[in-house]
Design a protein around this nucleic acid. Sequence first.
DNA 1: ATGAAAGCGCTAACAG
DNA 2: CTGTTAGCGCTTTCAT
Lengths: 347, 347
Amino acid sequence: VTQPAARSPRRGRPTLEDVAAHAQVSRALVSIVMRGAPGASETTRARVLQAAADLGYRPDTRARLLARTRSQLLGVMFNVRHAFHSDLVEGIYAAAEADGYDVVLSALTPSRDEARAEETLLGYRCDALLLLGPESPASPLADLARRLPVVVVGRRVSAEPVDSIHSADDEGLHQAVDHLVTLGHQEIVHIGGGRGPKAADRRRGYRTAMRQHDLGDHIRVLEGGQTTDAGARAARRLLRADTLPTAVVAYDDDCAVGALDTLVRAGVSVPRDISIVGYDDSLISRFPHVNLTTVGQDAHRMAGLAVRRALERLNGEEVAERELILSPHLIVRGTTDVPRGKAPARA
Amino acid sequence: VTQPAARSPRRGRPTLEDVAAHAQVSRALVSIVMRGAPGASETTRARVLQAAADLGYRPDTRARLLARTRSQLLGVMFNVRHAFHSDLVEGIYAAAEADGYDVVLSALTPSRDEARAEETLLGYRCDALLLLGPESPASPLADLARRLPVVVVGRRVSAEPVDSIHSADDEGLHQAVDHLVTLGHQEIVHIGGGRGPKAADRRRGYRTAMRQHDLGDHIRVLEGGQTTDAGARAARRLLRADTLPTAVVAYDDDCAVGALDTLVRAGVSVPRDISIVGYDDSLISRFPHVNLTTVGQDAHRMAGLAVRRALERLNGEEVAERELILSPHLIVRGTTDVPRGKAPARA
DNA sequence: ATGAAAGCGCTAACAG
DNA sequence: CTGTTAGCGCTTTCAT
């Protein structure tokens, strides 16, 4: 065996070559062993591993990425402040690693817009991109998706080459209404979330559900918003009337908590006097003293499906639906109950 | 000018060489222009930029990283679920980019422990590491820090080569007590956070402050914890006694909110009957209907200092203190007021 | 099963 | 100011 010539004044960390020299094998062999690829005898494998350990060798990701035909990198753009994204990121890591992919994170911050975040990801030559709740218009997303697989999570996008996965907002509201009707409620008002596709979907879900329960006459949508303030404002409007509805479904948890707080402070008992439902299963809704009945989405499932979709595209598999719509699920907690003096409509 | 030989069947994205060919210059020149380095005439610069734009060229970060002498990468380990880390990450991005450094994020998730997260960062050959709230023992951190600059944020670490930056927990509690005493409170109890250095520091801050105000006889520490449940439990214990203290300072916001909720439900008015102070300035504390007086730390400042410290180490500058301790600040909101029937101690 | 050699796309000296 | 020449550390054919 030829002793590989040791490079003269090595400065940095040990390289593949150093390990090869130490183990008396070729660099190629070390490479094979280090990435667990087949093609090395057990003996060699052990010797190489030992040499690597001796030298404290650690593969250089940069070199690896550069040399590899496919980067095996999944780029993920997310918003640091968005709690739901945290759940998604967790799920994405788990799913990606299970399939031998690495994840590179690119955060959205006040100083880093979406274009910048995407740019970074492209710079790493990711094989595919997972965009969590992007807000850029459909057309740039489509442009991006023409260059590499892009799957948008948590937002409805129907721009041609973009894959998307999100949950059915109308269905979520439908479930909330169903729940309340089952409890015996009829006067169910909806505090809307303003403009935006999500708010529209939820409003639609509310209306559809009400009609379906023959409660079309009771449909009442109050102007609301996505903040506790908006919820509080709507609740104040409610309080000004001589009679309160028996239940309210808010656009989201923040809005619901705002309403909840205002009502409680006004001496209204929840859920005894009025039931309240939120949307999102946010941190605040889970808080013991809020304990809000709400609608949640399965982040880990979404994450898994998003990763799978990306891999399907990378492997050139056929994909039936470009848009994946998941069902959200109602989470019954403490702010909903039968209306005062009424028994549930059905057991 | 020699026409650079076009490589035959190019498949992937355009490379530096393609741009060079298109602009009729050498690769080196393109490199210079692309990274904004000095050494190219305006004319050339413009032509190269134009060529790059024409071809839709985007530098390959992997290759860049590999070729550069120093990676110019700051590795950041953080916990996706920790809201405070989000603030830090934002600040880190801003500070790092201002100094021409790139940030690579490595998240802690249920499936990714600290060792793994650090491993990833080392794989990228980051120049320095910023660890947000690491929980690994001091010794491994020290080992790590012997190989590259490591600055720990949000935790006290005195292991030799590790830099650390965190805020003074005892001081935070001291400020809370000061605030209450200024309002006229004397019977101030502390709901502790159990074991752990942070809890110990805060407990100590409470005791010191009480003594300093000649309130040593009123010192009373209740067993608590870091959850709303723990806070609620402590509050129940408080309620069982025939007389309530006039103020309580909890280990953290969660604990405080638990106590707050329990007291309010028991008919105790806050802050009229009792004042409550939390710690952390968490999302929940800011919630309008919680509106908790609390102690906060300046995440952006911490982030900036952490980045600066890392760069100081990289530039071989002298560093006076290995451990940087920042003062937290009290945030007065709605859960503290003068005790029933008393006027403030001083105007 | 193992080794030799050719890059991956870029930066960094150095030479003109 | 511009071009030439070496690598950075690894993966990947292609031989052996």
